[in-house]
Write a protein that binds this DNA or RNA. Structure first.
Lengths: 131, 131
DNA sequence: AGTATATACTTAACTAGCTAAATAAAATTC
DNA sequence: GAATTTTATTTAGCTAGTTAAGTATATACT
């Protein structure tokens, strides 16, 4: 295996685990947080908007959104277009959101702390070249 | 989400999918190939050696190894130490191995083609700084 | 209006990672 | 040598991604 690709996979798994660790005290998983985060940013979203935004397939979002609703993080409303579902943060989620976001920001900063701003920019650029 | 971390996750998923596409014609998945590859390199391995080498948890390897045995890619032998299992490539796997490896090498080269050798080295270095 | 096509979401089934807990064999300790 | 601890693997159950196929509603076409 090409060492670069290998290392990229390793770091990706490492970072997922670290994200999960950070979110543990809020009883959230990484992908659940990413959905909450993007809903909050957009105030409300349809499932299609979410999976297109996060660049994953629709069934992944169906499942995660249902789980989040089950856990009380989001409310699912029906739309004028009866095919689609509109999703927004619950009261509980709105209340907890700032604390979780702060913890995540703190974590992310710590993760890239070993890189200078220059290196961070450089790496982003290099990653974007892979396609 | 920090853009660097986000992009890293995106590329990791993208590359997994591409690896799976490449392996499709051999009826293999990425993680199955990574197990076959490391067994081939070591001639034979115990499960513990495999999961330590690949840096994943034991149950992941138990499952993948069983699937590979089921599909006829590997043979599972018992060891003097009756706790452990020794695993090696089947005849069929040994025969197909070179072609698959060639396809994967070709794919990997194509993937990092957009990076110069310098950039590739640089990126590897930057990735390794994240911990 | 009625049919065909497109869109939104779901269901099922698979790979693939994880943790926690169980089992069995080996090694260590007293 | 018996009891304890460690090691190797497994089982169960969760998140999280995928593809393929299904359902229901909207939209477009003739």
């Amino acid at each position: 295996m090409n060492p670069l690709i290998h290392e990229l996979f390793q770091k990706s798994r490492f970072l997922s685990q670290e994200v999960n660790n950070t979110l543990k005290e809020y009883n959230l998983f990484a992908s659940q947080w990413s959905v909450l985060y993007c809903i909050q940013r957009h105030k409300e979203m349809t499932l299609t908007q979410i999976w297109k935004y996060l660049n994953v397939e629709a069934p992944t979002i169906t499942r995660t959104v249902n789980r989040l609703a089950e856990l009380g993080w989001i409310d699912i409303c029906s739309s004028k277009d009866k095919r689609e579902k509109i999703v927004k943060l619950s009261e509980q989620a709105l209340q907890q959101f700032p604390a979780i976001k702060a913890a995540m920001t703190e974590f992310e900063d710590r993760m890239v702390d070993s890189l200078s701003d220059d290196e961070e920019a450089q790496m982003l650029e290099l990653l974007q070249k892979i396609k």
